[in-house]
């Protein structure tokens, strides 16, 4: 056999090598009151940081420098130095801070007060705060990639509320399904997706037109949505599955069986891997975005919520 033929054989026989991931997951564990940092390349848990106050919501700055965790029962937001792995400070905000998002420049935090009807804008440096009325049970929060628009779910009003970042004023309220929870915006900033817990579907909003353009049925009790490769991946808490549908045609593509009570779902920066937290079984699972195969499982603390965009760029 020639060397060249041998090389071909080797190439064929070698298992596909996945690009080394420098992504991490920052997973707040609500029951154990801490945060697990998971190396997503190896799918192994690393450092655990004590947080307190039943941590639930997570946001990470695009440069990977800072993470922010809400503690609804402690009424504070923790500011975390993601590189040094330490809590820098905890900002007392009152109420029940829950969903959280951070502006692309990292200078503004947007925090939903679940029991207080408001969205808060907080400067993590100065702690200066502005407030805007959202409605009943503010839950998920997301910001467009250009930082101009914030979208918050008013869960018990069955609506998404659009807020202009500059003025921090409401500019639109859009009726969606029953009990919208997690909110995810696509990379182009064109569409927002929200999982409707009580109506078992996903509402898709055109952000320029400011209107509902489609509704996709998913499984029982959807919580979170991740977007990758023209597909939406939706964690269904009661069905214990991830529903996959084509975002252009809304055609259902797959139903992936996952762990117990899946809630939050994220995606690697290269779009190749989906991550889902399983709240009851205390695990983060990774799923191949093309084959839909379960690739790995990492242990977390007790009751991983990770409500928000929990994937951090570590390089």
């Amino acid at each position: 056999m020639s060397l060249r033929a041998l090389a071909v054989v080797f190439i064929v026989l070698l298992p596909p090598v996945r690009a080394a991931s420098a992504d991490e997951a920052f997973i707040p564990n609500q029951s154990s009151g801490d945060l697990t940092i998971v190396d997503l390349g190896a799918m192994t848990p690393g450092v655990t940081l004590p947080i307190g106050g039943k941590p639930a919501g997570i946001a990470v700055t695009p440069d990977g420098a800072r993470a922010y965790v809400t503690s609804p029962e402690g009424h504070f937001v923790s500011v975390i130095d993601a590189i040094a792995r330490r809590v820098v400070k905890q900002i007392a905000v009152g109420g029940q801070p829950f969903g959280v998002a951070v502006s692309p420049d990292g200078r503004r935090l947007y925090v939903a007060d679940m029991n207080g009807r408001e969205l808060l804008e907080i400067s993590p440096e100065t702690e200066k705060t502005r407030r805007v009325e959202i409605g009943a049970t503010p839950s998920g929060v997301a910001v467009t990639p250009d930082g101009r628009l914030i979208i918050a779910a008013a869960r018990d009003d069955n609506a998404l509320v659009l807020i202009e970042a500059e003025t921090f004023a409401r500019v639109a309220t859009i009726a969606v399904g029953r009990h919208p929870y997690g909110v995810t915006i696509d990379a182009q900033g064109r569409h927002a997706y929200t999982a409707n817990v009580e109506s078992d579907d996903v509402s898709i909003i055109d952000l320029a037109e400011r209107k509902l353009i489609a509704t996709a049925p998913v499984g029982s009790h959807p919580y979170g949505v991740a977007l990758a490769r023209g597909r939406a991946f939706v964690a269904n808490q009661y069905a214990e599955t991830v529903s996959v549908f084509d975002t252009a045609t809304l055609a259902p593509l797959a139903t992936i069986k996952v762990g117990e009570y899946p809630e939050s779902v994220g995606v690697s920066r290269d779009g190749a891997t989906i991550y889902v937290t399983n709240w009851f079984s205390n695990e983060l699972w990774s799923i191949d975005a093309e084959s839909y195969k379960i690739m790995g499982k990492a242990a977390t603390g007790d009751g991983p919520r990770a409500f928000g965009a929990f994937v951090r760029a570590a390089d």
Binding site: S31, K54, A56, E73, Q96, N115
Partner: peptide, 10 residues
Amino acid sequence: AVAHGATPQK
């Protein structure tokens, strides 16, 4: 009520 809080229990 239909509304529930922020911290589920096991």
